[in-house]
């Protein structure tokens, strides 16, 4: 039936809907597209909340949030404390940012202000290609390359530790930070440079004191996106950090992040058990964490924009 309606002869003779209605339909179509991501987000949030709730029929909320041991498949007694995993996630992410942010901003400043146009044209795409390397490959490098190097440098028996994860995540976050920061610095109006240089500032002073501050909103956004990547990354940390569930003791000891715990245990968990629901509760915690990161970055951005005006 619908094929006949689409036939041009009929449409010419008698439009099947008026132009105004058509306009409305198209409007509605784009509106639907626009709110689709909102619906998906709310849907995921609702799913996480409703699948998490049954977990707390058996687990005490306090012992979940503040417990120091996670062992749902224990031989003796199941434990559902998330603190070691929160600390692990925090350590690995923080480590990655400490490495990636200075390096990323430095690279971005180099690409935008120091490098010749030819170098920039070659170097920037190469940095961006780095983002396309699958996380398993990076994790593998962590096992066979970064780990042994770290073990030698720090004199530990092995390199399966938080520092290894941080280094790898820094590599993964770098392309985002470099690429977006470089755009932000390049977009600072030429008049800023010229004014600064005219006042007698050196090129270094101009970049550090004028251009980077002027591009700060973009740079912060870049770092937040990089951080989001680090918090949510799974495979790399799963392979390279040892994944011992004990409370982390130092950057040179093994850690087990929220994401790797979910990835390890969701594959084998029996449906509709406390353990199953507890993993969704972990997902909810992770969701709230990334949500807070994004919201904070948004608030910082807006504040900064106001001051800047």
């Amino acid at each position: 039936m619908s094929i006949q309606i689409l036939s041009p002869r009929i449409t010419v003779v008698k439009p099947w809907i008026s132009l105004a209605v058509k306009e409305k339909l198209i409007h509605g179509f784009f509106f639907l597209n626009g709110i689709l991501s909102v619906i998906v987000l709310l849907g995921i949030f609702a799913l996480l909340v409703f699948t998490s709730i049954p977990a707390f029929q058996e687990i005490n909320v306090g012992s979940f949030l503040f417990g120091l041991e996670w062992n749902p498949t224990s031989y003796v007694k199941e434990q559902y404390g998330i603190i070691p995993m929160l600390v692990s996630t925090f350590m690995v992410t923080l480590g990655a940012l400490v490495i990636a942010v200075p390096l990323g901003i430095g690279t971005a400043a180099y690409l935008s202000d120091v490098a010749s146009p030819r170098v920039r044209e070659i170097a920037k795409p190469i940095v961006e290609i780095l983002a396309g390397i699958p996380s398993v490959v990076i994790g593998f490098l962590g096992i066979v390359l970064v780990g042994p190097i770290l073990a030698k440098v720090f004199g530990t028996h092995n390199g399966l530790n938080a520092l290894n994860g941080s280094v790898l995540l820094a590599v993964m976050a770098l392309p985002t930070i470099v690429s977006i920061s470089e755009d932000a610095i390049s977009n600072v109006p030429k008049s800023y440079d010229q004014a600064s240089l005219a006042l007698g500032a050196s090129k270094w002073q101009t970049v550090i004191k004028v251009k980077i501050p002027a591009a700060l909103s973009g740079i912060i956004a870049a770092c937040m996106l990089g951080m989001g990547r680090a918090v949510g990354e799974t495979m790399t940390v799963l392979m390279a950090t040892g994944c011992a569930p004990a409370m982390p003791e130092s950057f040179l000891g093994p850690v087990r992040t929220l994401t790797s715990s979910i990835a390890i245990e969701l594959g084998e968990v029996a449906y509709n058990t406390t353990h199953y629901y507890a993993l969704f509760a972990l997902g909810l915690v992770l969701f709230i964490m990334t949500f807070l990161v994004n919201m904070t970055s948004d608030i910082i951005l807006h504040k900064y924009e106001k001051v800047n005006r």
Binding site: P148, H157, L160, C243, A244
Partner: peptide, 21 residues
């Protein structure tokens, strides 16, 4: 709780080969 949780037999073999302890 301090045992490293490796992702497969081959990873354990690799880990043990590199680690004297």
């Amino acid at each position: 709780q301090k045992m490293n949780r490796m992702n497969g037999n081959a990873q354990i073999v690799e880990g043990v080969k590199q680690d004297i302890s």
